[in-house]
Amino acid sequence: MTYKLILNGKTLKGETTTEAVDAATAEKIFKQYANDNGVDGEWTYDDATKTFTVTE
């Protein structure tokens, strides 16, 4: 399945997608991606749209 991440960081904003077997796997990938890019904030997930959002 395709999952989407919306980044609302102070210095980085944008979107990315990943292919993952489930939401938990996608979350791990996205949290590593956000960490690698210096984004740390409040996480939400919308199962209907398979979208994670992180807001600093």
Score class of each variant (00 low, 15 high):
M1H: 14
M1A: 12
M1W: 14
M1K: 13
M1I: 15
M1V: 15
M1D: 14
M1G: 12
T2A: 07
T2N: 07
T2M: 12
T2D: 05
T2E: 07
T2I: 14
Y3M: 02
Y3K: 00
Y3E: 00
Y3F: 15
Y3I: 01
Y3G: 00
K4S: 07
K4E: 03
K4N: 06
K4W: 10
K4T: 14
K4V: 11
L5A: 03
L5Q: 00
L5Y: 02
L5V: 04
L5K: 00
L5D: 00
I6V: 11
I6M: 06
I6G: 02
I6W: 04
I6N: 04
I6S: 04
I6L: 08
L7M: 13
L7N: 02
L7Q: 03
L7K: 01
L7V: 15
L7A: 04
L7W: 15
L7F: 11
N8F: 11
N8P: 03
N8V: 12
N8K: 10
G9P: 03
G9M: 12
G9Y: 07
G9E: 03
G9A: 09
G9F: 14
K10Q: 12
K10R: 11
K10V: 12
K10I: 12
K10D: 07
K10M: 13
K10S: 10
K10T: 09
T11N: 12
T11P: 04
T11L: 14
L12E: 06
K13Q: 11
K13Y: 14
K13W: 09
K13E: 07
K13V: 09
K13D: 05
K13P: 05
K13A: 08
K13T: 13
K13R: 15
G14V: 15
G14F: 13
G14E: 08
G14D: 09
G14A: 14
G14P: 04
G14M: 15
G14Y: 15
E15T: 10
E15L: 10
E15R: 07
E15A: 09
E15F: 14
E15I: 12
T16S: 09
T16G: 05
T16L: 14
T17K: 08
T17A: 08
T17P: 02
T17R: 08
T17H: 10
T18I: 14
T18E: 04
T18L: 09
T18H: 06
T18K: 04
T18M: 08
E19R: 08
E19V: 15
E19H: 14
E19G: 06
E19D: 10
A20V: 05
A20G: 05
A20I: 02
A20L: 02
V21A: 14
V21T: 12
V21D: 12
V21P: 11
V21G: 11
D22Q: 04
D22H: 04
A23I: 12
A23T: 11
A23H: 11
A23G: 05
A23E: 07
A23D: 06
A24M: 12
A24E: 13
A24W: 10
A24K: 12
A24Q: 12
A24L: 13
A24T: 09
T25Y: 08
T25S: 13
T25D: 11
T25A: 14
T25R: 06
A26E: 00
A26R: 00
A26N: 00
A26T: 01
E27R: 10
E27G: 07
E27A: 11
E27S: 09
E27I: 09
E27L: 15
K28Q: 12
K28F: 10
K28G: 08
K28H: 10
K28E: 08
K28D: 07
I29S: 05
I29W: 13
I29T: 08
I29G: 03
I29Q: 06
I29P: 01
F30T: 00
F30V: 02
F30I: 01
F30Q: 00
F30D: 00
F30W: 02
F30E: 00
K31Q: 08
K31S: 04
K31R: 14
K31L: 08
K31I: 08
Q32R: 12
Q32T: 10
Q32G: 06
Q32K: 14
Q32N: 07
Q32E: 09
Q32V: 10
Q32F: 06
Q32L: 10
Y33S: 02
Y33V: 05
Y33T: 03
Y33N: 02
Y33F: 13
A34L: 08
A34E: 01
A34R: 01
A34W: 03
A34P: 01
A34H: 01
N35K: 15
N35R: 15
N35T: 13
D36E: 11
D36H: 09
D36L: 12
D36Q: 14
D36Y: 09
D36G: 06
D36W: 07
D36F: 09
N37T: 08
N37V: 15
N37F: 14
N37I: 14
N37Y: 13
N37P: 01
N37K: 15
G38N: 11
G38L: 06
G38Q: 08
G38K: 08
G38P: 01
G38A: 07
V39A: 04
V39S: 03
V39R: 02
V39I: 15
V39W: 13
V39Q: 04
V39P: 02
V39G: 03
D40E: 13
D40F: 15
D40Y: 15
D40A: 12
D40H: 15
D40G: 09
D40N: 14
G41W: 06
G41I: 02
G41V: 02
G41R: 01
G41F: 03
G41L: 03
G41Y: 03
G41D: 02
G41M: 03
G41K: 02
E42D: 13
E42K: 10
E42H: 15
E42A: 11
E42R: 09
E42Q: 11
E42Y: 13
E42P: 05
W43S: 01
W43Q: 01
W43Y: 02
W43H: 01
W43N: 00
W43R: 00
W43A: 01
W43T: 01
T44N: 08
T44A: 13
T44L: 07
T44M: 10
T44E: 09
T44V: 11
T44W: 08
Y45D: 00
Y45M: 02
Y45A: 01
Y45G: 00
Y45W: 05
Y45E: 01
D46S: 06
D46K: 04
D46L: 04
D46V: 06
D46N: 10
D46H: 07
D47T: 09
D47Q: 11
D47H: 11
D47I: 11
D47R: 08
D47E: 15
A48N: 12
A48M: 13
A48T: 12
A48Q: 10
A48L: 14
T49I: 08
T49M: 07
T49S: 10
T49A: 06
T49F: 05
T49G: 05
T49Y: 05
K50D: 03
K50W: 07
K50Y: 12
K50E: 03
K50Q: 11
T51R: 03
T51P: 00
T51V: 07
T51H: 02
T51S: 05
T51Y: 03
F52Q: 00
F52I: 01
F52V: 01
F52G: 00
T53S: 07
T53L: 06
T53H: 06
T53Y: 13
T53K: 06
T53P: 00
T53M: 10
T53R: 08
V54K: 01
V54M: 05
V54R: 01
V54T: 03
V54I: 10
V54Y: 03
V54A: 03
T55N: 09
T55K: 07
T55P: 01
E56H: 07
E56M: 08
E56Q: 11
E56R: 04
